[in-house]
Amino acid sequence: MATSHLEYNEKTSATEVASAFASHIRDKNVVITGVGPNSLGEALALAIGSQKPRNLILASRTKAKVQEVAAKVQDLSPETSVEAVVLNLASQKSIHEAASKIQSLADRVDTLINNAGMMVLERETTDEGIEVQFGTNHVGHFLFTNLLIPQLKNAAKVSGPGSTRIINVTSAGHRLSPVRFSDYNLEGKDVPIDERPPDGLPPMFSTTAEGYNGWLAYGQSKTANILFTVYLSQHMASSGIVSYGVHPGSIWTGLSRGLDDIGYETMSKTSSFWKNADQGAATMLVAAYDPALKAVSDPSEVYLSDCQFAKTAPHAVNMDSAERLFHLSEKLVGIKFAL
């Protein structure tokens, strides 16, 4: 599979992509998580908002911040209905409330962009006691997405196959760790070889005596984003819904607010090209609206970077792991979902 714009690359902007796919955005209902000022979420909202979607629902943990972005988009596109929804992905109660609010606002969702994410170096947990990066970046979005499946299916019924899409924002950081099914809270339990980090990582990626390493926890959560995408791509195609995982590229965002000096130094060495927010949001829009992207038969073809398809670490596209993660996630949210 290939995109329809092979000339797009790391320098392409979301504004440019939205303009190119304007007819696929117009009159659609769009939900974006992780929307705040000076963020990838804001860049996504502004780019999509510029092409007259019918409803743009922006979700974030902080009401004032998401309302600030909503006001900007409303000024840009007065004919679009723009709604701000409070969503704390570290609280399953908040996720249920946000999903219920969205269900009352729109009977269908054409595009869901799970953009929110966090990275911390010290152990934190969600309201339910799950390690906070796994719990927020994956489990929170897992619950949120599944609660909106009826709205996504409604959209797919009135759109062509492959037009309704779920975009999960992941990271090249998925290469740091598989999902640690035996120790997803990183509590120091012994894990089998296939759940351990790859060989050759620097000492800073080693777990502590208590079992925790923020980098590995982040890597696990980003692998989970891709495995969830793999599961959705295989199980939702019959409903006309497709899913893609996206690495935005190297960009300094609020995601890095939890890093210490060593963390900043490490991050600064990971790329020779640092994107602005508009460039960072571009690949999400390719994944969300490029008509060349349809149902995925090969689980390895779900990942995009720099506006083109890219390869993942093998542990991120293993179908058995995707199935196992889905059922673990159901257990962690206390609900069985029939897709």
Rank of each mutant, 00 (worst) to 15 (best):
193 I>N: 09
168 N>F: 07
151 Q>E: 12
17 V>S: 08
214 G>T: 06
272 S>A: 12
125 T>A: 09
301 E>H: 13
101 K>R: 11
57 I>P: 01
170 T>I: 07
288 A>F: 03
240 G>I: 11
253 T>W: 02
308 Q>G: 11
36 G>V: 14
258 G>D: 09
305 S>T: 10
303 Y>A: 03
225 N>L: 05
183 D>A: 14
122 E>H: 15
321 S>C: 03
261 D>S: 14
185 N>V: 12
210 E>H: 13
117 G>H: 08
306 D>C: 06
71 A>T: 03
190 D>P: 10
37 P>T: 07
313 A>Y: 04
275 K>E: 03
47 A>P: 01
295 A>C: 10
91 S>K: 02
192 P>E: 05
322 A>M: 07
307 C>H: 00
214 G>P: 06
11 K>A: 13
56 L>G: 06
163 S>K: 14
78 P>V: 01
37 P>Y: 02
217 A>H: 08
269 K>C: 08
234 Q>W: 02
103 Q>E: 12
32 I>K: 02
10 E>Q: 14
183 D>I: 13
298 D>S: 12
21 F>G: 03
312 T>P: 07
265 E>A: 15
294 K>C: 08
95 I>D: 04
209 A>M: 06
115 N>G: 07
18 A>M: 01
319 M>Q: 08
164 T>A: 10
239 S>M: 13
191 V>A: 11
276 N>W: 04
28 K>P: 00
239 S>F: 15
132 V>C: 15
223 T>A: 05
272 S>M: 10
225 N>R: 08
